[in-house]
Design a protein around this nucleic acid. Sequence first.
DNA 1: ATGCCTTTGTGAACGCGTGCACAAAGATTG
DNA 2: CAATCTTTGTGCACGCGTTCACAAAGGCAT
Lengths: 254, 254
Amino acid sequence: MATGRTHRPATRSRGIPEATVARLPLYLRALTALSERSVPTVSSEELAVAAGVNSAKLRKDFSYLGSYGTRGVGYDVEYLVYQISRELGLTQDWPVVIVGIGNLGAALANYGGFASRGFRVAALIDADPEMAGKPVAGIPVQHTDELERIISDNGVSIGVIATPAGGAQQVCERLVAAGVTSILNFAPTVLTVPDGVDVRKVDLSIELQILAFHEQRKAGEEAAAAEAGTPPPIRSTAASRKGPDGEVPAVMPA
Amino acid sequence: MATGRTHRPATRSRGIPEATVARLPLYLRALTALSERSVPTVSSEELAVAAGVNSAKLRKDFSYLGSYGTRGVGYDVEYLVYQISRELGLTQDWPVVIVGIGNLGAALANYGGFASRGFRVAALIDADPEMAGKPVAGIPVQHTDELERIISDNGVSIGVIATPAGGAQQVCERLVAAGVTSILNFAPTVLTVPDGVDVRKVDLSIELQILAFHEQRKAGEEAAAAEAGTPPPIRSTAASRKGPDGEVPAVMPA
DNA sequence: ATGCCTTTGTGAACGCGTGCACAAAGATTG
DNA sequence: CAATCTTTGTGCACGCGTTCACAAAGGCAT
Ligand SMILES: NC(=O)c1ccc[n+]([C@@H]2O[C@H](COP(=O)([O-])OP(=O)(O)OC[C@H]3O[C@@H](n4cnc5c(N)ncnc54)[C@H](O)[C@@H]3O)[C@@H](O)[C@H]2O)c1
Ligand SMILES: NC(=O)c1ccc[n+]([C@@H]2O[C@H](COP(=O)([O-])OP(=O)(O)OC[C@H]3O[C@@H](n4cnc5c(N)ncnc54)[C@H](O)[C@@H]3O)[C@@H](O)[C@H]2O)c1
């Protein structure tokens, strides 16, 4: 999970646990797929498999929203899609601004799945004067000077930061001062925000490092098992060259 | 947090809790910044602020790695950088392949922070024959047909999937069959993998939906507070037009 | 109408993660 | 060398999240 919230200690957001909120979009995606295949109802077990979670967890999650299921039958797909959408606030249209239209910002602007679920790219903002006016994904880039006006005019409350790390905190402060209360941060920095502002971060580098940790551990365990004469569990083909870059696994030589 | 692991029930990865592992890269980043400023030592309190966490949590996290601090003084920055790097497996060089060189894949390939910490883009792979041979970020794109050979030749164990959702599971299976045991997935799908393979996902859409949930809740609470005659907490300027797109907040009209 | 079969909704137990608070450790100063 | 001051390392309690397991609910067949 390339994510983490900031501030706001307790959960109790109208009683729905934070962990549940984080899974609702997952259920919604699975349900939307079922809806497109015109499947009328689905059991907690089927839906759980589709969403990649435990079925008891899924039922408990839904129980926070109310009793929308029918015992012996399951859940009505359309009805559940509506209920979850409403709970997540997706029945409204959320204007979003993206700040920092470089490699990543441009990719985000071009991302189709953005608009698909109630989010609309209201503006693209960059500090580079060269970029001003140039269209990216059909939307002209605007200069940072316009930031406050853009936020205000469009009633934007969600901002995406895709600037280099150095500028992120300052951009964040301007966004917040202008009225933004939710920020999705792609820059590798810890953002400091006042209470009442939500920050979520997506950090590629952290994700890779976490994977590397487990990868190293797997290589170590495997080496230890080989040392002990235990044959590697399965997949010994790939296993035999698992030390990355031809390096020796980080275990004691003797 | 745009993240979530799959499979592998218990933690106990050599005793280091998963939550701690997820924070180590954060500490490492803060420590690297200190190191570049030639700061010799740092207290848990200072470092905690820099990393945006509680200092007790930070100390407990470090205690899992061993006793690397000096009471009354703090932690030696250089030494800690080394210890965390080693623990995360960053003293090795990890070759990574990126599959699906579209908007996002190209941005990832161009991402500088990639190589900075032990990760090296070994190959770019795409199914589009038109792209084969074209250089992206200085690396020629190779066709999917070569996938197995590339993984094998380079000893790749970490793969990044940036294809459309439809192709992700199949790409995933080919990667795993070829020997990849860690996957970072950007496609909005639940990937099914065999035991022993780690999957982490980054899902922009889910992040935005979580933000929207809290945003809606804030708007609702505010409306309720206004109704009750209680003035909005702070920042009433921005608050007064918090209903997105000029819509009425989703509360009962009367 | 009655009984069976499926599936929900949730009580309860458990484990992980967090944060407080403090004793022990060590540096520093006189 | 002793006193003081700073900061670590951790015992402990608490709360959240997960999972099991099952009683209740409801559809459906006879
Ligand atoms: N490219 C990736 O795949 C990737 C992956 C993970 C994280 N990131 C992070 O995302 C951020 C952007 O990455 P990128 O590759 O797009 O970088 P980039 O250099 O291509 O783009 C950065 C853009 O931000 C603009 N900018 C700089 N300062 C600004 C400011 N104060 N206000 C507004 N705009 C400003 C620049 O003009 C530029 O257009 C970086 O922090 C990077 O670490 C990128
Ligand atoms: N662009 C974004 O900012 C963004 C954000 C979040 C998630 N995503 C997700 O990331 C993925 C890629 O997004 P994108 O905007 O780069 O899409 P894109 O259409 O620009 O690029 C997809 C690329 O994958 C290639 N491809 C398709 N099937 C393939 C296969 N089976 N094997 C190898 N390559 C294959 C295509 O040739 C194309 O080059 C999508 O799943 C999207 O939902 C993108």
